[in-house]
Design a protein around this nucleic acid. Structure first.
Lengths: 180, 180
DNA sequence: TATTGTTATACTCTATAACTATA
DNA sequence: TATAGTTATAGAGTATAACAATA
């Protein structure tokens, strides 16, 4: 831990560095808070969309609405089903579709784990006063909306490309990238 | 793209969702902005630490200061060396250490790519007015400092554990981490 | 022919373990 | 014995391609 002051400043002046570490720290906190309920943050997100309203959703609909790949959704539903939190039902109207519903256990898990999620978020934001925390969330939501709708570049245009349509989570590809 | 309004609200009320997508979007923008200079964001970070001051740094020192694994640093330096941006010099005082220095090309690349980085960050923040953007950055820095120093939990304690000492970037393990 | 769920596969990123050469 | 660099390997996470069943 030989952190010189100047170096720390240099790192924390980079927005990417700050954003990455904020994300990783929050992900750690969420993962730890949800561990007692035996659900991953990603799984909780799926659970809450399934339980969002009365609407029946197929795996494919869940995937596209959350911005997750179809094949990733398969493994998530596999895991949730294995834990007894959701059930797959073949749709009678279109037998290709798997309608996913919460079990009683799943409803309970969603309620309790989601409370833990809120607490973990509060713990993450605890170093900020309430106003600042609210402004942070509002700013992130503004950025999300702006970049998701594709109306992003304005002040200083980035040459290569414009932002994708929020196709979920891609660690790899950014541009074309002929792989070096 | 069948986004119902209520569902979108549900997703953007989750701090983890917002933070993750903000991070991914920024990472995309940074990657695209840096692509013309043939450097990855991670590599630019290493370049800038090498060029931070006159101090000579070994690979190991670079790794621990940035919070990157030793073995990851090897491949980063490999890549940078392959591009002619840095050079490895065996330290005469301790022949185990590789002192890493910038080449002329590396200095130029650092200067130009870092300008592109600043522009990409500005483009990312463009949807926010200047005050809000400044507050966002300040809030992120506050969170970074608070969680890195381990003085995090205050308002609502998370049961399982307390935050690690910012050991860099870990995608996998969340909780059971003695090792610091 | 197109779509849903599924499987198999590949790719990225990062960490762990073990080896070497120095100390 | 311990440390710096290196290599090989493993793991998590996600995406792409192909296949079967259904429309």
């Amino acid at each position: 831990m030989t952190d010189e002051a100047g170096l720390a400043d240099l790192l924390t002046q980079r927005l990417g560095y700050l954003m990455k570490h904020a994300y990783l720290r929050l992900a750690d906190l969420l993962g730890a808070a949800l561990a007692p309920y035996d659900v991953h943050p990603k799984e909780l997100g799926v659970l809450s969309v399934i339980g969002a309203d009365g609407a029946e959703r197929s795996q494919n609909e869940l995937a596209s609405e959350i911005g997750m790949d179809r094949t990733t959704m398969v493994s998530v539903i596999d895991a949730l089903e294995g834990k007894g939190l959701v059930e797959r039902h073949r749709s009678v109207r279109d037998r290709r579709r798997n309608v996913v519903t919460l079990t009683e256990t799943g409803i309970t898990c969603l309620r309790e784990a989601d409370r833990a999620r809120v607490e973990a978020e509060a713990a993450f934001l605890a170093p900020l006063d309430e106003d600042t925390a609210g402004q942070l969330t509002a700013a992130l939501r503004t950025l999300y909306d702006a970049h998701a709708t594709g109306s992003a570049p304005a002040r200083t245009a980035v040459p290569g490309q414009d932002v994708a349509v929020c196709p979920g989570d891609r660690p790899g590809s950014a541009t074309p990238r002929p792989k070096d």
